[in-house]
Design a protein around this nucleic acid. Structure first.
Length: 378
DNA sequence: CACGCGTGGCC
DNA sequence: TGGCCAAGCGT
C-alpha cells in the first residue's frame, strides 16, 4: 500500500475501497480474450489497442494480431508494411509503428524478454504511464497504479474532485490518489476492476449508482454531483474541409488489369504510413477539379485531366471534419512507371488488398469495385 | 504543457 | 445532426 498523502481529504481507508471493488469485480468481471493469459506481450498488445478505443472494436483486431504475431519475436521480425496492414481501420497508427519498433527494442536490448518493472516498461516506445502500469500490475503483479478515462471518472466522483481534468496538474493529483488506493494484493485485478467499474457502472451519463459497490463511500453520490464530475474545459468546435482525391488510370476506357496510382503518406503525422489516392485540401476560391490538378502537380509532378466524379465521403475525425470528393482522372502524357517519388505505386484493383488504407480511402476502393466491370482485374 | 493523432457508437 | 466519449502517447 502506498504511503503518499492525498492532496485532499478522503476518509475511507484504501483497503475498504479496494476490498469492495475486488468483491464486485469477482462477481461481475467480463470475459475478454486478453484476460485468459498473463503473457506480458499479449497484455501489451491488448492495452495498446485499447488506448482510446472501445473493447468491442478491439476484439477482432486482437484475435487477428495474436494469430499472426503470437510472440514479440514474431512481431519484431516482420516488415512495418505488414503490421500497418493488420492495424488498418483501427486508427491512431503511431500505436502500430511504436509497437513494431518497441518489439525490436525488446529483442535487442532486453534479450527477447519484456521488462518487468513499470519504470523500465515506460522506456519503450508507445508505452506511457498508463500502459506501463497496466502491464506491470496485470502481468507481473507490481502494486503500481493505472489512470485511464474510466478510472479518472470513478475517482473524481468518489472524492467529488472539482479540478479541471484536462489540466495535467489535476491528472497528477488523481494519479497520486490512484497510487494510494492500489493494494499490494491483486493489484492487476484491482486496476482492471477500477476501470471496469467506470465502464459498466460509473458511466459518463446516467451512472448506475444504486448498483455501485463504492456508493457508500462516494462523495458525489452523497452530494448529487455525479453529472458534474469530472470537470472538463470544453473542446473547440471542429472545422470542416473539402478534400479531393484522384483515382488516376491510364485511359478513359478501363482496360483489363488496369493499374491505379496510389501514394504512401509520410511516416509521421495524420494517417502516417498509410496509402491513399493522391490529392489534398481544397483552397478558398478553387473548384474541386482545380484543387485536384494542383495537388497532383505538387505531389507527383504530373499533369492530369479530371474526369467523372466517383463518390463523396463525409468523415469526422476527432478535431475536424472532411468531405472527401473522389474523381476519376487520367494522366495527360501517358503513364510513367517512375515518377521520381519514392512512395508511390501503380497497382491493379486486386493488388490494393495488399496495402493499408484509411477508412475514407477504403470507401473509395469499395466504390471503384462497383464501377470497374467484373472480369477486369480478377 | 497543450496539442495532434482515427474510428465507431451513442444521443 | 454535431458533439462527446472511448483501457493514452509523443512531442
Amino acid at each position: 500500500m502506498s504511503t503518499h498523502t492525498l492532496p485532499f481529504p478522503f476518509p475511507p481507508s484504501p483497503f475498504t475501497i479496494s476490498h469492495s471493488l475486488l468483491a464486485w469485480w469477482d462477481a461481475h468481471r467480463a470475459d475478454l480474450p486478453w484476460r485468459q493469459t498473463r503473457d506480458p506481450y499479449a497484455i501489451w498488445v491488448a492495452e495498446t489497442m485499447l488506448q482510446q478505443t472501445q473493447i468491442a472494436t478491439v476484439i477482432p483486431y486482437y484475435e487477428r494480431w495474436m494469430a499472426r504475431f503470437p510472440t514479440v519475436a514474431d512481431l519484431a521480425a516482420v516488415p512495418l508494411e505488414e503490421v500497418l496492414k493488420l492495424w488498418q481501420g483501427l486508427g491512431y497508427y503511431s500505436r502500430a509503428r511504436n509497437l513494431h519498433a518497441a518489439a525490436q527494442t525488446v529483442m535487442q536490448r532486453w534479450g527477447g524478454q519484456m521488462p518487468r518493472r513499470a519504470a523500465d516498461l515506460q522506456t519503450l516506445k508507445g508505452i506511457g504511464r498508463y500502459t506501463a502500469g497496466a502491464i506491470a500490475s496485470i502481468a507481473f503483479g507490481e502494486a503500481t497504479p493505472v489512470l485511464d478515462g474510466n478510472a479518472m471518472r470513478v475517482l473524481t466522483r468518489l472524492t467529488d474532485y472539482a479540478g479541471d481534468v484536462t489540466r495535467s496538474a489535476s491528472k497528477n493529483e488523481l494519479w497520486q490518489l490512484a497510487a494510494t488506493l492500489v493494494p499490494d494484493s491483486r493489484p492487476g485485478d484491482y486496476n482492471q476492476a477500477l476501470m471496469e467499474l467506470g465502464q459498466q457502472i460509473c458511466t459518463p451519463a446516467k451512472p448506475a449508482c444504486l448498483l455501485c459497490p463504492l456508493a457508500a463511500h462516494c462523495l458525489a453520490w452523497q452530494r448529487g454531483t455525479q453529472p458534474e464530475r469530472p470537470v472538463q474545459s470544453p473542446r473547440p468546435r471542429t472545422p470542416h474541409y473539402d478534400v479531393v482525391a484522384g483515382v488516376i488510370w491510364q485511359n478513359g476506357q478501363i482496360e483489363a488489369n488496369e493499374r491505379f496510382l496510389i501514394a504512401q503518406r509520410p511516416l509521421h503525422g495524420l494517417l502516417g504510413g498509410l496509402w491513399e489516392f493522391p490529392g489534398g485540401k481544397q483552397e478558398p476560391g478553387e473548384t474541386l477539379p482545380e484543387a485536384l490538378r494542383r495537388e497532383i502537380q505538387e505531389e507527383l509532378a504530373i499533369e492530369i485531366a479530371v474526369g467523372e466524379h466517383l463518390t463523396s465521403i463525409k468523415h469526422a475525425y476527432t478535431h475536424f471534419r472532411i468531405t472527401l470528393h473522389a474523381f476519376q482522372a487520367t494522366h495527360l502524357s501517358g503513364v510513367p512507371q517512375h515518377l521520381g517519388v519514392a512512395n508511390h505505386a501503380w497497382v491493379t484493383l486486386a493488388e490494393l488488398d495488399d496495402y493499408a488504407f484509411a477508412v475514407t480511402n477504403q470507401k473509395i476502393i469499395a466504390t471503384l469495385r462497383q464501377v470497374v466491370p467484373d472480369g477486369v482485374n480478377r
